[in-house]
Design a binder for these strands. Structure first.
Lengths: 171, 171
DNA sequence: TGTTGACGTGTCGACTTTTACATGTCAATC
DNA sequence: GATTGACATGTAAAAGTCGACACGTCAACA
């Protein structure tokens, strides 16, 4: 259901788009909360078209198909968002790694944490670039802000924890 | 692979455990980063036993089986943790909802955000209770701290964003 | 004695997601 | 004229995940 809703959301905001566009949009906007490959997106769009949630608006030149959200699609998205559920199911591989860190020798744990900090910095640079490109306007603004905060928080946690472990090694 | 590593980690820290124990441990410790039901855990343990990563240490009274990590399992976990990868693949349903919020009428968006704040508060209470029960000692300490920070951050973001939207409604 | 609820293990079908394979257009560059 | 790389769409097999079903033990309490 989540993938479907994500696609409906992207179509709402970005207007009619191709599967290819949506794949790119996924990577650029929603990536820190959800991922999907084109091999998942194309069949899902086809199913949604079957169900009347989207329509093929145009079959362009190079076999390109443009999908647009329908009334029914909008209604479904709205209902889903308003139906709380708030289950907060998270899968975060980096956090999992962090959790498993105490099984390592302290020195190794510190090394992994230091590397995580660098990786977060790189990611933050990327997000910053996207933010500048969007220039404050645009849909993904709130979400990007959230993603950056989360990444920054993880980064800081990793750095602090590395220092804490280093202190405990020395003593 | 992640599930497998999570189980190896739990076995490392908590010592020999049954599938049932591991299911509970999952919920109590690692839940904000990864989830698994017993229906996934039992078959995975069986496969891991086949592969020599764990051994059945004891078949207790009520059909209870106790698994222990092997040398090979420890080695695999260590290798996985040290092999950076740092792919940071995240699936966060609440964040996805947050991302889709701007497709709603501002009033609806605010309502959803307010509800998210309450849900985070409840979750934080639960985590706080776990933390008190562990009382600073214990393995999951770092991870719990990270989970709480992440939840608190999301909570604050939701609150701030709700206020920002409300301001823009009024003006 | 019967029932309830925590303990405890497992399977199965449906759905989701990944990885790899497969195909083709078009513009630019060599 | 050939190659390269972005554009563009798809399928299939395998792996991962979830929800429901199914079975059985044991202790406590009514």
């Amino acid at each position: 259901m989540s993938l479907r809703m994500a696609l409906l959301g992207l179509l709402t905001v970005s207007g009619p788009s191709s599967g290819y566009d949506l794949t790119k949009l996924f990577e650029r906007s929603i990536n820190h909360a959800w991922q999907a490959r084109h091999s998942q997106i194309y069949p899902e769009l086809a199913k949604m078209a079957d169900g009347g949630l989207v329509v093929i608006e145009e079959e362009g030149p190079r076999g390109r198909k443009t999908y647009a959200i329908t009334e029914e699609g909008s209604r479904l998205l709205r209902e889903w968002l308003l139906a709380g559920e708030s289950s907060r199911s998270i899968r975060d591989e980096l956090a999992l790694r962090a959790f498993l860190l105490p099984t390592l020798e302290p020195e190794d744990a510190v090394a992994v944490l230091r590397e995580a900090v660098l990786s977060c910095d790189a990611k933050l640079d990327g997000m910053e670039a996207i933010r500048r490109a969007q220039d404050g306007k645009g849909f993904g603004r709130y979400a990007l802000e959230l993603g950056m905060r989360q990444t920054r928080m993880f980064r800081d946690w990793a750095e602090e924890t590395a220092e804490e472990i280093e202190r405990s090694i020395r003593s």
